[in-house]
Design a protein around this nucleic acid. Sequence first.
DNA 1: GTTGAAAAACGCGGAGT
DNA 2: ACTCCGCGTTTTTCAAC
Lengths: 159, 159
Amino acid sequence: MASKLKLDAIGLKILDLLQQDAEQQLAQIAEAVGLSSTPCWRRIQRLKESGVIRRQVALVDAQALNVGVTVFVSVRTATHTQEWFERFRATVQAIPEVVEFYRMSGDVDYLLRVVVPDIAAYDAVYKRLIAGTQLFDVSSSFAMEELKFTTALPLGYVR
Amino acid sequence: MASKLKLDAIGLKILDLLQQDAEQQLAQIAEAVGLSSTPCWRRIQRLKESGVIRRQVALVDAQALNVGVTVFVSVRTATHTQEWFERFRATVQAIPEVVEFYRMSGDVDYLLRVVVPDIAAYDAVYKRLIAGTQLFDVSSSFAMEELKFTTALPLGYVR
DNA sequence: GTTGAAAAACGCGGAGT
DNA sequence: ACTCCGCGTTTTTCAAC
């Protein structure tokens, strides 16, 4: 779904508004970008169809769900086979506490962001991680405070 | 907005549905949780008012915005005054390429997730970071591949 | 807390400029 | 490609169980 839809100034403004707040009515967005509702609606449709807007979600308060602790987990591995990777990936994907998962360059092979209620719960996730695949080095860093978290991407680099 | 709204099984199911996809109609959600639309609507209202649902946003494709490169930046500092912190925080908050920003325990003091088009653009962000406040140690790790990214938090820990 | 239905608002599409 | 306008649906409110 990676499409090459050209994004003009109005399209960018629509994206900006929607990635800040997707609850506003079509009419408000239309007015904000200086369009009537029909063409604005069609633009939003195209943005969704082309995959530029991937989905629309509700962001839930982590405290309310009792997962206020964020842990970053750095993983090093000695095994670098395709088979091992697929297994590791499947293991990690299936753990709902893992909300982000990256393959890295440099000395760390993988980086995970995990959300849990406390350190004891993290230990359970840790055990699940190392149980899923063969041995590797794991190093955990705890976040004391979330200073910024946004799903809004910067719009300044659009070609 | 940190409220102690009790979350029952139906409330959790509503949250789960909405954090997967906030576009579905009220009627669909109501049917899925086995409620008629009025009580379901009231529950969602309460979840929003109490702050359990923080906001509703559109997730935009990073490739389409030409910010396909994720960099994790570890920051160490020698200065630990309140004044320095406030200045650093303000600097970082103002940089739109920084999408996540945590104060950490352990050897690293702060961890940032930065999204940019390429390494050259990252260098510009790096310069902006070190220009904002006094000297500190900065270490950058590049993500080669995003294996998982979700805004959906696990629901299994609700008390 | 639930239901069903009425009132209001909105999304969506067509025809025209 | 946008504006205007109206139909059909959905949200939202209300009265009653």
